[in-house]
């Protein structure tokens, strides 16, 4: 399979001269979901933002389906973007939020309205009930669903998700993960997901990439991740499941 998205030797440096990404190369297969994990400040978000050129790398290239898109607006319209804070526009109804990219592309109201209804259903929201609400009238999980619907509106070939479920309670997060998994069986798109939740990565991803201090440490298929003997992976995995580990220890010593 070909690479839907390819980062080639990406380096990003801050204005103050600090290196955020150090010649990162990463190729993402079409139709796959790649999770990038790593500590805060490891460069995950920066890497994701070079894909839609919110961050411009000091050197290196980002290729989409093998070529470099020159026009930044059309580049961005080919990519869905979902973030933790949802970034829903507070002065738009749910319907307008979801349809904004279509509106920007100049599609007719009728086309937009039909597409928005389909999208809301896709993310599990009843259009009758939700289309005319404003973002502040939604729960965190509902807002995230609307954010996802908006990201999918223009049928993007690539979906960029930056800790989309990071602010949700565990139960809602689990629901959202199930919804996303189910949805991705119906919508063929390539996903780049940033998370620091290892469980989320293991549950959703085809490949897991561990980033540390601006470098890729590990890039493996999901099922090899926990089997890896690499110390970085072992310490990352140990940082999770600590509660379970403690409980297990306690019941063993009883």
């Amino acid at each position: 399979m070909s690479a839907a998205l390819e980062f080639r030797d990406i380096s990003v440096v801050t204005a103050a001269g600090r290196s955020l990404l150090d010649s990162v190369s990463l190729s993402i297969e079409e139709g796959s979901l790649t999770a990038i994990i790593g500590r805060s400040g490891s460069g995950k978000t920066t890497l994701l933002r070079t894909a839609n050129r919110i961050v411009v790398p000091a050197s290196g290239q980002v290729l989409i389906a093998g070529s470099i898109e020159q026009d930044v607006v059309s580049l961005r319209r080919r990519m869905g973007y979902v973030i933790q804070e949802t970034g829903l526009f507070p002065h738009f109804t749910v319907e307008r939020n979801v349809g904004i990219v279509l509106e920007a592309e100049g599609r007719s109201r009728a086309q937009r309205s039909q597409r928005v209804r389909d999208l809301l259903q896709l993310v599990g929201l009843d259009p009758e009930n939700f289309a005319q609400r404003y973002p502040h009238q939604l729960s965190g999980g509902q807002r995230q669903r609307v954010g996802l619907a908006r990201a999918l509106a223009a049928e993007p070939s690539i979906l960029l998700m930056d800790e989309p479920f990071g602010a949700l309670d565990p139960l809602t997060r689990a629901e959202m993960q199930d919804m996303l998994r189910e949805l991705l069986t119906r919508v063929r798109t390539t996903v780049l997901l940033i998370t620091h939740d290892l469980d989320e990565a293991l549950y959703l991803a085809d490949r897991i990439v561990l980033l540390s201090e601006g470098k890729i440490i590990v890039n493996v298929p999901r099922n090899e991740f926990l089997r890896s003997e690499r110390p970085e992976i072992i310490s990352y995995a140990a940082a999770f499941h600590r509660g379970a580990a403690r409980s297990a220890q306690e019941s063993a010593s009883r």
Binding site: N52, I54, V73, S74, L75, R76, R77, M79, Y81, I83, E85, G87, F89, P90, H91, I100, V101, E103, A104, R150, A151, A154
Partner: peptide, 23 residues
Amino acid sequence: TLIEVARAIGLTNRQRLFKIELP
């Protein structure tokens, strides 16, 4: 965040101004 999202979803500068910033 809203400004960033407006850019990231591919609004042109003019669309960002008239649809997001001015309202």
